[in-house]
């Protein structure tokens, strides 16, 4: 297929990235007939699609979130398995973002494009590590694509949480963590730091914690926060979705120290705007060094940037002779990651 260009068979459309010969949308923002979903976060996995291709873990997450609306027909594709769709070979490879998260490796006409979805490169005890795949075009996120974002070691962040619990034993520590991935990873990290007391959960976190447990990730003793006496929370750690941190829900806790586990906590003004008293810089997205190292590692001569701080990453890539452009996909936001 001489003269075939990558953008001839993978196009940015208003429904999302579309692989034409396979008639396959990747993380479509509107319902389509055939989709491949990289991971279970709501801005990537939406309900109402026809046939949905994803890892078994991602399908389980979608099922837990959307029930019957998750897909008309779910098609599990485990990491490493391949599938041929209209002359396109599709393979899912771990992305290291959350449980079940995958990069989509597409091969067609002798070309290979990797759509990495959201990813990170550092260790995560709740999911397999990102696997770099050499390719002709690498499609990357850019959530933290500024050189000011260099996430610190997460054990140090957990240590500062536990030090604060020791300093304020009469207060509860309320940790805001996104319900899929961040909450479970934070819980695992707290366990690794030796905290074996029960952790208390906002009701919205329970189902996904159960799901992680069912996939063999031991989260230790978890208790619902509901229906408990205020005073009983003194000295305890409670987890809730970020949106509940400073809402009425938190009034059940005794003068809580509000913490939040997020890569955004790196920038003081962002943390202060949210009224966070104890920022924990724990991110499920690659930081600047991880992004640039990944671009170098996969060695793609061409890079497409989906969402985040595209300008900085495109600039960096261009200075290294990589053809880079921003896709400006709609429907992707800076999440409460």
């Amino acid at each position: 297929m001489a003269g075939l260009r990558p953008e001839d068979w993978l196009k940015a459309t208003e429904r999302g990235l579309w692989c034409a010969p396979a008639d396959l949308y990747i993380d479509p923002v509107r319902a389509v007939e055939r989709a491949v979903v990289t991971h279970g976060h709501a801005d990537h996995a939406r309900p109402g699609n026809g046939r949905v291709l994803a890892t078994p873990e991602t399908l389980a997450i979608m099922q837990a979130r959307y029930g019957d609306a998750a897909a008309r027909q779910a098609q599990p594709l485990a990491y490493g398995e391949t599938l041929d769709l209209g002359g396109v070979t599709v393979r899912l490879v771990p992305a290291g973002h959350v449980l079940g998260s995958a990069q989509v490796v597409l091969e067609h006409g002798g070309q290979r494009i990797v759509v990495s979805g959201d990813y990170k490169r550092r260790r995560d005890p709740t999911c397999p590590a990102f696997e770099p795949v050499a390719c002709d075009v690498f499609v990357t996120e850019a959530t933290f694509a500024l050189p000011v974002f260099r996430h610190p070691d997460d054990a140090g962040e957990i240590a500062s949480l536990l030090a604060s619990v020791a300093l304020f034993p009469e207060r509860a520590h309320l940790v805001g963590a996104y319900g899929l991935g961040k909450a479970q990873r934070t819980i695992r990290l707290i366990r690794e730091a030796g905290w074996d007391r029960p952790l208390y959960l906002h009701g919205a976190l329970q189902a996904l914690c159960d799901l992680y447990e069912a996939h063999g990730i031991d989260l230790g003793p978890l208790e619902p926060a509901a229906g408990r006496d205020r005073a009983a929370f003194a000295g305890e750690i409670v987890l809730a979705p970020p949106g509940s941190l400073s809402d009425r829900w938190s009034r059940r806790l005794p003068d809580p120290v509000t913490a939040m586990a997020s890569g955004w906590m790196r920038v003081r003004q962002r943390a202060k705007q949210r009224g966070v008293e104890l920022p924990l810089i724990i991110s499920d997205h690659a930081d600047w060094d991880e992004l640039t190292a990944t671009l170098e590692e996969v060695g793609a001569p061409e890079v497409w940037v989906t969402h985040g701080r595209e300008e900085a990453l495109v600039h960096w890539a261009a200075r290294r002779g990589i053809r880079a452009r921003a896709l400006s996909l709609i429907g992707r936001e800076d999440e409460d990651e």
């Binding site: 500024l146 050189p147 000011v148 974002f149 260099r150 790196r266 920038v267 003081r268 003004q269 701080r309 300008e311 900085a312 600039h315 960096w316 200075r319």
Partner: peptide
């Protein structure tokens, strides 16, 4: 860092000491 990345970073963070510390 180069001028473009410094400008984008400073603009995002908004405080010189903090930008420098992070960069």
């Amino acid at each position: 860092t180069d001028e473009v990345l410094f400008a984008l970073s400073y603009d995002y963070v908004g405080d010189l000491a903090e930008t420098t510390a992070l960069l």
